[in-house]
Design a protein around this nucleic acid. Structure first.
Lengths: 251, 251
DNA sequence: TATTCTTTCCGTATGGCCTACGGAAATGGG
DNA sequence: CCCATTTCCGTAGGCCATACGGAAAGAATA
């Protein structure tokens, strides 16, 4: 299936939910069995355990021992529920503004990475039309403040912001993608690659791929550690080089 | 729905399809109404027009005026079909090895970006367990050859490779995400943001977000052009800074 | 020509998904 | 006790992937 999309219906209604606008307590009528917070928490729990694909309205309702359609009283639909889930887990980052601007960006990357690790379904959430809630906004402010301290021109700050934000989310997403697949399919990344040994035996053509062959012969792929370790190392390297470049471009 | 995953069943069967291992022509039996190539082409056409979510087996079969289950004679399942689609469009890149290593990486990024532009559903395809077909492998070889020419140590080449490859695919994916959403939902990115004007009016807190406010007041957001233009500019900037960093790290 | 063998085609059935609709049930106030 | 209000939720419609098994088509053989 295609990636989950957010931001469906009426923006005003969704924003009110994201910022938990205190609706005046109803004096009249039937008492609610569930709250928005309970629904969001249950949905996150299901997605954490079984992936976003398994997070159906029916499944969440079951978790709360409530009829499926009851959820629609509190939440406009599935897209908005995903918005709420996303902003909620982004709030877990607890960003502390300490150190140089570079240290703060690294801190932001670490905390964001931790969110993806704890909630691998974030990989499936598109961030191009993000939920404009406190979790997202606080993160944006944090990065913009750091970049503004770096000495870049205002216009350059906004450009660098998109690049950094994209890199961080992209890296975090890619990193957990493997874990999510491992959980969903029951096959680890290393096992998956192992099962494709056939490829190197039957299809890999040394003449067609000289650079790869040379690297292989140079021992570049003789390394310890799991696939996940390598990916993590590479992303760390990439962020450092990106920040190097941003720093160097100012002089 | 969660992102489409590939690489489902028997690796040997999938690899044979990806490399189009010439199966000896059947002398006996009923003549096939459709070929693997026709199925892949039709599937790509549907996904291009209506998104990967609309690319159902039934929809593809309908396109070919064939029964749904007939497809399963030629293709093991939907996951493998997506593998075939992915590798096929990656082959469209036609990478020409000219210029410095930096120019070649930029060329690779441009060509890959063009693939995503032409086939926005690529955003929904996970590349952590990619189809090991000619389209993917040729791209890997191209990038590795460029990085090997840069003077990096073999071990460093493999690390930089993951970072660059990840950045390029991430950037391309993010860039078309907006377009895909526009096509699927019928609402452009600019329209979407416009509808969320309410946010700035009712929820944005100047005290809570001083850096954003300062940038706004400095005119950093007073720019011409569409959202898509800005995103493109930022990714270009990001790749250049990443390559700057890689270049600088060698000295 | 009739039979047999091989291959492809595809109808049916199962069990899932989201959510529009409308009525039932619960609650507090008059 | 009644009624306005609010929440709960069963039903139903229209999607999806794919396992299974039999029908249909073509070529070789008798």
């Amino acid at each position: 299936m295609a990636a989950e999309r957010s931001g469906g219906g009426d923006p005003a209604r969704t924003l009110a939910l994201l910022w938990r606008t205190p609706r005046e307590p109803k004096q009249v009528g039937r008492k609610p069995k569930v709250s928005v917070d309970q629904i969001v928490t249950a949905a996150i729990a299901v997605a954490d355990r079984e992936g976003l694909g398994a997070m159906s309205m029916a499944r969440v309702a079951q978790e709360l021992t409530v009829g499926t359609m009851s959820l629609y009283t509190h939440v406009p639909g599935k897209a908005e529920l995903i918005d709420l889930m996303t902003d909620t887990v982004l709030q877990e980052r607890e960003l502390t503004p300490e150190g140089t601007w570079r240290e703060r960006i690294k801190h932001y990357a670490d905390r964001t990475r931790a969110v993806y690790q704890a909630h691998p379904w974030m990989r499936d959430v598109s961030m191009v039309r993000p939920p404009l809630g406190p979790g997202l906004m606080d993160g944006q402010e944090f990065v913009l403040a750091a970049l503004a301290d770096s000495g870049l021109e205002p216009r350059q700050v906004t450009v660098a912001h998109v690049a950094v934000e994209g890199f961080v989310h992209g890296a975090a997403a890619s990193e957990v993608d493997d874990q999510q697949l491992a959980a969903t399919t029951g096959e680890s990344g290393d096992t998956w690659w192992g099962a494709r040994q056939v490829f190197w035996d039957d299809y890999f053509d040394v003449e067609r791929y000289p650079a790869m062959t040379a690297l292989w012969n140079a021992g570049a792929y003789d390394t310890e550690g799991t696939l996940a370790d390598h990916v993590h190392t590479s992303w760390d390297y990439g962020l450092d080089r990106l920040l190097d470049g941003i720093e160097g471009g100012m002089r």
